[in-house]
């Protein structure tokens, strides 16, 4: 929390850096906050990081009436028709649904990769639509790690360069960055392939690089869009295990869109999406019960 004096009514306001308008008189406080930030008061910057004051929120991501309409020529195609979803801090959430159900769209909204047509998406109780370009980039860089079905590695960069890219953006020093990059690649079992280009690696190896890259800045949320979709069983299993343990032991929130039953197996909750709406949400406890009854 930083104390900022409102330029108009002179009231001292405590803010995390994300509220830019004085709650009393409605004056724009951006200028004051920028000044504070420039002169080294880090508190005036957005505090989306691992911060004591923020960890109190129960829900890390919340969506309210999220709608997304794509325009294809003259035709309007609704991809999401009002999704209300609360994602708890530190939970392992799987989003399931047939292709075209809108789960990728929902995934993009939650990850700040796309803007909803209407409705709001909150991350740590902050409306994402209120974030400026810098805060959004900061969020994507430090707060969220993305894993894609198609890996999305930068083709001209080596494995190490791919992993260090988010650390460059985060302003990490060169030596520290290379060290952490090599460490992460070693952790995912690619310690001997640091300088290989993506096309020199197998699909499973590419996804490991992508996982290492997602972990680069130790994000609080990992968004995984069908991470095991293009992988062999063994690698898929290892990546699921990695995600599960990250989730269980360092309280990283995992949100994944998936068809993979092994992935469903470790999830705390499963959200079923159909035709752009939440069809139902299964709690893990219920599934265990079902499995239990089946076993008897």
């Amino acid at each position: 929390m930083a104390k900022i004096e409102c330029p108009k009514c002179k009231k001292v306001i405590e803010t995390t850096g994300l509220v830019t308008v004085c709650p009393d008189c409605g004056a724009d406080m951006r200028e004051v906050m920028e000044k504070l930030a420039r002169f080294g008061d880090e508190a005036a910057r957005p505090k989306l990081g691992k911060d004591e004051s923020m960890t109190t929120h129960e829900f890390i991501v919340r969506t309210k009436g999220l709608k997304k309409i794509y325009r294809m020529g003259d035709v309007e195609v609704p991809a999401l028709r009002g999704v209300d979803l609360d994602i708890r801090r530190g939970e392992y959430l799987s989003i399931m649904g047939p292709s075209g159900s809108g789960k990728s769209t929902l995934f993009n909204m939650v990850g700040g990769l796309d803007k909803p047509s209407s409705g709001t998406c909150f991350i740590e109780e902050v409306d994402m639509a209120q974030l400026d370009a810098f805060e959004l980039a900061w969020l994507r860089c430090r707060k969220i790690g993305y894993i894609f079905q198609t890996f999305n590695l930068i083709p001209v960069m080596t494995a190490l360069e791919n992993v260090t890219l988010p650390m460059i953006f985060a302003g990490m020093g060169s030596d520290e960055m290379l060290e952490r990059g090599a460490f992460l690649l070693d952790v995912v079992g690619l310690g001997d392939r640091l300088h290989h280009k993506p096309f020199e690696l197998s699909g499973g190896q590419q996804q490991r690089v992508a996982v290492a890259r997602a972990l680069a800045n130790a994000p609080a949320i990992i968004l995984a869009d069908e991470p095991t979709g293009n992988l062999d069983l063994q690698t898929g299993k290892e990546i699921i295990d990695l995600l599960k343990r990250l989730n269980a032991e360092s309280e990283t929130t995992i949100i994944s869109a998936t068809h993979d039953l092994k992935m469903i197996d470790v999830s705390d909750r499963i959200v079923h999406i159909r035709d752009g709406q939440v069809e139902r949400i299964d709690e893990r406890a219920d599934i265990d019960l079902e499995v239990g009854t089946l076993g008897e």
């Binding site: 860089c141 993305y146 999305n152 890219l165 985060a170």
Partner: peptide, 9 residues
């Protein structure tokens, strides 16, 4: 797109 996901402005 990938670079923007990784935090590029």
């Amino acid at each position: 797109g990938t670079m923007k996901c990784l935090g590029a402005m």
